[in-house]
Write a protein that binds this DNA or RNA. Structure first.
Lengths: 157, 157
DNA sequence: ATGATTCTGCAAATCAGTTGCAACAACTAA
DNA sequence: TTAGTTGTTGCAACTGATTTGCAGAATCAT
């Protein structure tokens, strides 16, 4: 049974298999979704997408697979400042860490890479003698558009 | 009825009152606990401490008060890398933001202030035209002690 | 193919946090 | 001081996200 998204194994799949884990049908589906996601997805969204490819997939399998991927450092878990409740979002672990900016007004999420951030991580490792495995830098505030909107609405002259 | 911890109003209490909010008995108790906490507490711990001063205080009141304080920017909510499940921890909003380092092995939380972090925030505000309200930088990894322990345990020569 | 072992789906449970609502307490103004 | 308005509390029940126990099913090495 061919699954379009799974024809090309993809990095996540390759990684998992190289670690000696069983490559099941449902894992292939979930991996392909996370791998090709255009935005940050939460568990429920991933489940919904997964069911389109395999209606039998269970919620629990999605949770277990995400936990597995996280444990192996293949995906990162984001809170996105809990803008939409307590759900978690996921993205493939990037080569270079980035910052997530969450607009408190429109909810838009932007990403930003920065040398300063890289240097900050280096400083932490050196000065605190702390070996960094994962980082999560999220900032909440107002994006460019909402800033100007808020200025006219919330702070009248 | 005198409540030792509440004799001196404390910054949080002063702040809340200056914003015209009602200073109830149970709020005073909760504020005093958050204010004088030596470590990061979660809602359940805060409730437990609060009940020692006023056994009648309800869980819900703790949650509502924390939400109120957060909304007013008086406390910060931390995830501490979800080392102990999905609970949230709280601390008084500091004058200067700091980084939280969570050891994945011993669970210890360390804090760190850094110029680079301050500069990074400045860069975000300028280059992304993003007005920062809150930041949350958490890193997970291995602290100095656990680093050496892991070296002898997990990475044998 | 076979079998040891790992995964899956189901159902039920857990855990943190929230909501509706009636009783109650703060602050205001008289 | 009292009375009243309005915000706050406690209770109970609920929600939403995630987890657990377990029997049956699928994977992979042989």
């Amino acid at each position: 049974m061919p699954f379009p998204q799974t024809e090309t194994p993809g990095r996540l799949q390759t990684e998992l298999m190289s670690r000696g884990l069983r490559m099941t049908h449902q894992r292939r589906v979930i991996l392909s979704i996370v791998e090709t996601a255009k935005q940050h997805l939460d568990a429920a969204q991933i489940l919904r997408h997964a069911r389109r490819l395999d209606p039998g997939i269970d919620r629990v399998t999605v949770y277990r697979t995400l936990k597995l991927l996280k444990r192996h450092g293949l995906i990162d878990e984001l809170d996105l400042m809990h803008l939409e409740g307590e759900k978690h979002f996921y993205e493939r672990h990037p080569q270079r860490d980035h910052i997530h900016m969450a607009c408190l007004r429109c909810g838009k999420i932007a990403e930003f890479e920065s040398d300063l951030f890289d240097r900050l991580k280096g400083q932490i490792q050196r000065e605190c003698r702390f070996h960094i495995v994962v980082t999560r830098l999220e900032v909440g505030g107002y994006c460019a558009q909402c800033r100007t909107l808020s200025a006219t609405r919330a702070f009248p002259a």
